[in-house]
Design a protein around this nucleic acid. Structure first.
Lengths: 164, 164
DNA sequence: CGTTCAAGCTTGAAGTGTCAAGTGAACCGT
DNA sequence: ACGGTTCACTTGACACTTCAAGCTTGAACG
């Protein structure tokens, strides 16, 4: 973002060039509005938020439609606490149920119900169409791959700057 | 995200290929964790959220350190409502004050105070350093420019799919 | 002038996320 | 076998965002 115009005593910081700033502001706009747009579409058409969709989708990808909470948190980029709240809401709506893992009582398994599966199946086409129209089909295959790689690259830096 | 494995009656939807899905999941990870990481750093070092920083930064960029609420909302990617709440908090902390626009009473001007400016000046170096280490310096100048352009490209699609 | 309209902003309630503390199950050393 | 520790998760309080009204000011029209 813009640096203060005057009065900062020469710090050992390389400020952003005009070009860097412009790119960064574009990226920030995307970071703000892309998730927003996806949430809008999902909520309008299926009364689901993106996390909720991701939870259902990830569960549906397993043969037994089941995943441990911690694994689910990992793949949905959610904290365990957040996932716990999300699953609680999904449970109240009958899309998911929970059961303790019999092999290790510390784990909780989240299980996609039939209703949950139907809901996902109904939501998926619209979501994918929206994704395609906003992102996937807007970029060439190479551009998309590059974007994915850049994202992964940045993620690696984030992870190594481990705030955890 | 993963499509349901079976049972969806052939809809007119092109599902994502494995490669597309992989890129998309990378992007989603970035959309989740990059804002998080930036917020962490800002909050840890300066007790500011990213919106708050943006508000201060954008105000500081004006000669009179003043902007109309609506213009400020625009450049910070915030809704007017959200901005109103944010500015209220910043006002309570003494970083910003508000005054009605004398030329048109409908407008409210947000004004950066000296304390707010000092706070921004103190926060900026750390923020920029963090940005550089996560994003700017991780990519080559061309990569960054391309990323910015791709972002702008996607933004254009989002805006034209006007959910407003 | 007076009425209607829209724009710009504020407000309060409801929803969602985060953080810190709490619970209970398994592990580990003695 | 029992005491402490770690792990997996839950819970509740608080903070922030959003959404739907509401308020105030100026413009447009008669």
């Amino acid at each position: 973002m813009a640096q203060p115009r005057r009065g900062a005593k020469q710090p050992p910081v390389k400020w952003l060039t005009a070009s860097e700033l412009e790119s960064w502001l574009s990226i920030v706009r995307l970071l703000t509005w892309l998730p927003w747009s996806i949430d809008q579409q999902l909520h309008r058409d299926s009364k689901l938020s993106m996390v909720e969709y991701q939870v259902l989708a990830m569960l549906s990808d397993n043969p037994d439609r089941t995943m441990r909470m911690s694994a689910l948190a990992e793949v949905t980029n959610a904290s365990l606490s957040r996932l716990s709240h999300v699953v609680e809401r999904l449970e109240r709506r009958g899309f998911v149920r929970r059961a303790p893992d019999r092999t290790d009582g510390r784990f909780t398994k989240a299980i996609l119900t039939d209703v949950g599966f139907e809901t996902l199946a109904a939501a998926a086409p619209g979501h994918v169409r929206h994704l395609r129209s906003l992102v996937i089909d807007v970029l060439s295959p190479e551009q998309l791959r590059r974007l994915g790689r850049d994202a992964a690259h940045i993620m690696a830096r984030i992870e190594s700057s481990g705030t955890s």
